[in-house]
Simulated assay, not measured.
Amino acid sequence: MRSHPSRPRTPGALVSLLACLLLGTVALGGCSSLEGSGDKGYVTSDGQVEVVAPADRGEPIELEGEDLDGKPLSLADLRGQPVVVNVWWSACPPCRVEQPDLTEAAAELEGDAAFVGLNIRDSSSDQANAYVRTFDVPYPSFYSADGKALVPFYGTLTAYTVPATVVLDAEGRIAASVLGALPSKQTLVDLVNDTAAEAAADDAAAGEDAS
């Protein structure tokens, strides 16, 4: 596990990524230099875990859209607690392998963190909903067949990084990421708990200063 400063999100870079997504290169990998994906369209190795120090975190991630049933969904509504965002698609074998770990982590962290999926590439929400039913996924997912929902995560996620998991802090900033399948359920639980502990320590310090 290693720490790194968040990469700058420049307007030009965002435009470039969006252009790639609109041209359909999500499926072809044309916007990514990630190795180990081959022509499968997903990451084949265990996830690479990276942690971002609080002082190095960027702006809060802003993402609004619709869930798999067409209902409004927003990351802003989940602020005030750690949020786990998992990128997946129904035909991705590593996504299926890691889903039980995600489901168990969501149950273990219920009340302490929110979970939300980010579904890309599925040509219809019916495919995505079939996956949700098969694996009994307990949390909602953004539906973004064209991958545009990845744009706010530029600098951490690429158009070709799936599966991937991001942990946002209580302010909505990227605190940690796992590129590839989760190494284990405990890895994710530890990342979330560490992020929550930071917020608790900050609150305690603020209380001491106020007194």
Rank of each mutant, 00 (worst) to 15 (best):
R2E: 09
S3F: 09
S3Y: 08
S3E: 12
P5V: 07
P5E: 08
S6V: 03
T10A: 04
P11E: 07
A13T: 07
L14N: 07
L17A: 08
L18K: 10
L18H: 08
A19C: 05
A19D: 04
C20I: 05
L22A: 11
L23H: 08
T25I: 03
A27I: 04
L28G: 11
S32P: 01
G36M: 06
G36Q: 07
G36V: 07
G36K: 12
D39F: 07
T44K: 12
D46F: 09
G47S: 08
G47N: 01
G47M: 05
G47K: 02
G47Q: 02
Q48T: 11
V49D: 00
E50S: 12
V52D: 01
V52W: 04
P54N: 09
P54W: 12
R57A: 04
G58S: 07
G58F: 09
P60D: 02
I61Q: 04
L63S: 05
L63C: 04
G65V: 02
D67K: 08
L68V: 11
K71H: 09
P72E: 03
S74F: 04
R79F: 03
Q81F: 00
W88T: 02
W89G: 03
W89Q: 05
W89D: 01
P93Q: 03
P94L: 05
C95L: 06
R96A: 14
R96I: 01
V97E: 14
V97N: 07
E98K: 04
Q99M: 15
T103W: 01
A106M: 00
G111S: 09
D112M: 12
N119P: 11
I120A: 08
A128T: 01
A130E: 15
A130W: 08
A130F: 08
D136A: 15
V137G: 06
V137H: 10
P140K: 14
S141A: 13
F142I: 14
F142W: 10
F142T: 04
Y143L: 10
S144W: 02
S144V: 10
L150P: 10
L150G: 11
F153I: 08
T156M: 08
L157T: 03
T158Q: 05
A159L: 13
T165A: 04
V167T: 05
D169L: 06
A170Y: 00
A175H: 00
A176Q: 00
A176C: 01
S177V: 13
A181K: 15
L182K: 06
L182M: 13
L182S: 03
K185G: 02
L188M: 11
L188Y: 09
D190I: 05
L191M: 11
V192F: 01
V192Y: 01
T195V: 15
A200D: 15
A201D: 15
A201L: 08
A205E: 14
A206P: 01
G207F: 02
E208S: 14
E208F: 12
D209M: 14
A210N: 10
A210S: 15
S211I: 11
